[in-house]
Simulated scan of single mutants.
Amino acid sequence: MNKKIIVALSLIWVGSQAIAQNVPEKYLREMDKISNTYTTDMRQFLRSLPNSTVQFNPQQKNQYCSIVAIYVDDFYQLIDQNRASLPFSYTNMTKQDVIVQVKKSKEMQLLSRYHIECDLNQVK
């Protein structure tokens, strides 16, 4: 039984390594750049909010939604430009799929207490 588990885990690891090696390094660098820009922009935005903030004013909502929309658009464009060389799970990814992933992220869940709805379907 233990031998089967070790073999299964080994196959999973080898498979994940093969997939990781098939992802172009340029894609990984660009994704890292997009993520870092998003993280930096979001941190700056959140630090600019007073501690007493319980709801965003219209300007804060616009700023927040703009940061998230840029992230979604950049992430989707990167996927779209690299579809042919990405793992299968990304080849059919739509912008709506990216939006759903972003909305499910821990960061977005933490910010849900502000009850902000951004229209992320709009094209830049």
Rank of each mutant, 00 (worst) to 15 (best):
N36Q: 15
I70F: 09
S66E: 06
T91M: 10
R29A: 10
L120K: 01
R29W: 10
P24D: 04
N82F: 04
K26M: 12
Q122Y: 08
E30C: 05
V23R: 03
L9F: 12
I12N: 09
A84Q: 11
I12G: 07
K104C: 03
P24N: 06
V14E: 08
Q101R: 11
Y90D: 02
E117S: 13
N82A: 02
T40N: 01
S112F: 05
S112M: 03
K104F: 04
W13G: 14
A18D: 10
T91K: 13
L78Y: 00
K61Q: 08
P50V: 09
I116C: 01
I5T: 14
P24C: 07
V100M: 06
R83Q: 02
A84Y: 10
K4M: 15
S35D: 13
Y27P: 02
S66R: 07
V23A: 06
Q55G: 12
K95Y: 07
V98F: 00
K103M: 04
E117H: 13
D80A: 11
N57Y: 03
F45L: 04
M31K: 11
I12V: 15
Q17M: 14
N57R: 10
I34A: 01
N92R: 11
Y27S: 02
Y64N: 02
Q21A: 14
A84W: 11
K103Q: 08
K3L: 12
T39M: 02
Q17A: 14
A18H: 09
G15R: 09
Q101V: 04
L49N: 03
N36S: 14
G15V: 12
F88R: 12
H115M: 07
Q109C: 02
Y76P: 03
W13N: 14
T91V: 06
Q81I: 01
Q96G: 10
A84M: 11
W13E: 11
V54R: 14
P58I: 09
D32P: 10
N22W: 12
N51A: 09
M108H: 02
S112L: 02
M93P: 02
D119N: 05
I12M: 15
Q21M: 14
P87S: 04
K4Q: 15
M1P: 11
K124P: 15
E25K: 14
Y38E: 01
D80M: 05
S35P: 07
V68S: 00
D97V: 04
D80E: 13
F56Y: 06
Q81P: 00
Y90G: 03
